[in-house]
Write a protein that binds this DNA or RNA. Structure first.
Lengths: 244, 244
DNA sequence: AATTAATGTGTTATAATTACATATCTGTAA
DNA sequence: TTACAGATATGTAATTATAACACATTAATT
């Protein structure tokens, strides 16, 4: 919400002048995308003087008539133009001094989007994709929030077919494997990986091949519709001692 | 917090008369205990007329100078006398109409305590332990909160040695197995269970036996100190298709 | 002394995981 | 057109983990 706060200084004033209910509530969105074999996060340049030069997550204060998820969707829509994205609540961050302008408790969500499909209106904002490996310091406690969300994402992709929200509708097994590798930070054996995915029975072979790749094209697949969006799967895979 | 709210009607009034920052924040604690081979939850009789006769979780509004975990500890201490308990944040609940007296977002924590070791001051409050199987309707959205926390607890005990917070310092393998069964709602094979626990290497054999049991006494064990409180374990066990 | 009820322990069959190599196909560059 | 580079596609064997299962032993109770 931190950037939202910036834009609404009047309200912050109001908060800090109340003697009891002076805690504001925000949501912050960790928006993950995948491009160039790297997991990326959408960040905005912080406009708080305290955090000059640093990037922060997208967030805003909660409004009276909306719940947290609605607020997250609103922020995604307003700031990026995105709709219908995968969104999951992760954790509430509440350190008393986490916001320089006053007491703000924030609830973190992570979101998974297909960078290339969703056309973001990145230009007018100070929005940029950052590879997770390149991110050092962030404004507020956003580095902690990011790390927490990333940890949750890693856990999630090992249990549920949420990863497909990061890929285009049609994708090759190589793309899928590279994405798992980017998220988990490990190398996977190609034959074992394919066996596991095939056991999962998540994919339909649509009898098409990759195009415009600088090598022999592989088959492309779609996710079976019943696994679109969120889903619970009974049993997890295990790869290299990790439950996948 | 809902009962806390009750006691602070003045502040509620204040909230609802504000036009913008009129969202209150509370924590609610799902306090799990284990007794008589049953997983139990500590509940308090709701004093809201809207929920007459129903029980609710223990909660209270957040104060300006405390974070969410501190608030949870404060509530546990104030309402039950408990200190040094295992506590874990689970989820924020934010439905606009979840509280009849106004807009309140609550963050749920679950707590694990050894019922017989911690002497609760249950008497003066309307506090009672309820077996999870016996709980039907609860005040507010507390049934949803309870279910969410129980789900998280089930997930947690399959991955980390948090379950020992529910047991006395010394316990037998039978007690441990019965506790897993109570939490997970499954029957486990004794020999396989013992093998898995022994592979985990969580326990020390303190060379003592059960006493005052109406049958052949079993050995009692302690948790190795390095696994006390929270802990991450590299690999999970799997029992009956469930990762244990 | 007999009975009851729980402890303590090991093997076998099945399933899952890991490590690993070769033939094939396509695009690109000579 | 040919050779080369780089990726696809595929299966087996060794190891490890899991699930199912039975019997002798111990202590308390009658």
């Amino acid at each position: 919400m931190e950037n939202g706060l910036q834009l609404k200084t009047a309200e912050i004033e109001k908060i800090s002048h109340l003697d009891y209910f002076n805690i504001a509530i925000s949501v912050d969105c960790v928006i993950f995308g995948y491009d160039q074999k790297e997991l990326k996060v959408l960040l905005i340049k912080s406009d708080l003087s305290e955090f000059a030069g640093l990037y922060s997550l997208l967030g805003d204060l909660i409004r009276t008539q909306e719940n947290l998820k609605e607020a997250s969707y609103r922020i995604l829509k307003e700031r990026t133009g995105l709709e219908d994205v995968y969104l999951e609540q992760v954790h509430a961050f509440s350190a008393v001094d986490r916001h320089p302008s006053g007491r703000v408790i924030t609830i973190a969500y992570y979101s998974l989007i297909d960078i290339n499909h969703h056309k973001l209106k990145l230009s007018h904002n100070e929005l940029h994709w950052h590879a997770i490996g390149d991110i050092k310091k962030l404004a507020f406690d956003h580095r902690l929030i990011l790390d927490t969300c990333l940890e949750r994402l890693r856990q999630q992709v090992l249990e549920n077919p949420v990863i497909f929200n990061l890929l285009p509708e049609k994708f090759s097994l190589r793309q899928l494997q590279e994405l798992y590798q980017a998220i988990l930070g490990v190398k996977l054996d190609r034959r074992n990986f394919r066996k596991k995915i095939s056991v999962k029975d998540w994919l339909v072979d649509i009898d098409e091949m990759e195009e415009n790749v600088p090598h022999r094209p592989g088959k492309v697949y779609k996710l079976k519709p019943e696994f679109r969006k969120k889903n619970r799967i009974s049993k997890s895979l295990v790869i290299n001692g990790m439950t996948l």
